[in-house]
């Protein structure tokens, strides 16, 4: 077993984990952050995307021990303290950027990171920037529209959170 200290959505956790435990398992089974989903489990689909020190990563392909000493943000850490949605969450809601919703947590976390990297992406840059996240329902059109709305909202609000 290995001792790790990880900050998840603003709370610091100290745990003993098996070295083989994946970050996504740790988040779901130890910390209880079941908002982060396991999709393909082979690093293709992006459903398990979280932010590790602000960088979007596939948490099925990171070990929990590799997150030792680092900060993780999951979909459950995006909303404000009174439950107001993050502009990217609000945009996915407004633009109906989902059908079954399974890809949505990963899609939103990758979109948050994308808008931090590039606050004013073109449509092509959005599609390229989301190519590690698969959606089997929407055909992506409304997802792209949501990211565009979020980019405008964040620009108006004075930058990404």
């Amino acid at each position: 077993m290995a001792k790790i200290t990880v900050a998840v959505d603003g709370t610091t956790y100290q745990d003993e984990v098996e070295p083989r435990m994946l970050l996504v398992q740790y988040l779901r089974e130890k910390v209880g952050k079941t908002g982060t989903l396991i999709g393909c489990d082979t690093s293709n689909c992006g459903a398990c995307t979280v932010l590790l020190d602000g960088a979007s990563v596939k948490s099925c392909s990171v070990l929990a021990v590799q997150a030792d000493g680092h900060e993780v943000t999951t979909i459950e850490g995006l909303a404000g303290i009174n439950g107001e949605l993050h502009p990217v969450q609000q945009a996915f809601h407004d633009k109906h950027a989902l059908q079954c919703g399974y890809c949505t947590p990963g899609m939103i976390m990758r979109s948050v990171c994308l808008l931090n990297e590039n606050p004013h992406p073109t449509e092509a840059e959005i599609r390229e920037g989301l190519n590690g996240n698969l959606c089997r329902c929407t055909g992506y059109q409304n997802i792209v529209a949501a990211v565009q709305q979020a980019a405008d909202a964040l620009a108006t609000a004075g930058g990404a959170r």
């Binding site: 690093s43 992006g46 995307t49 590790l52 960088a55 979007s56 990563v57 596939k58 392909s61 990171v62 990758r110 990171c113 994308l114 920037g129 190519n131 590690g132 996240n133």
Partner: peptide
């Protein structure tokens, strides 16, 4: 190479 998430790691 791959996608943005993979390129971060």
């Amino acid at each position: 190479v791959a996608d943005a998430q993979v390129r971060y790691r």
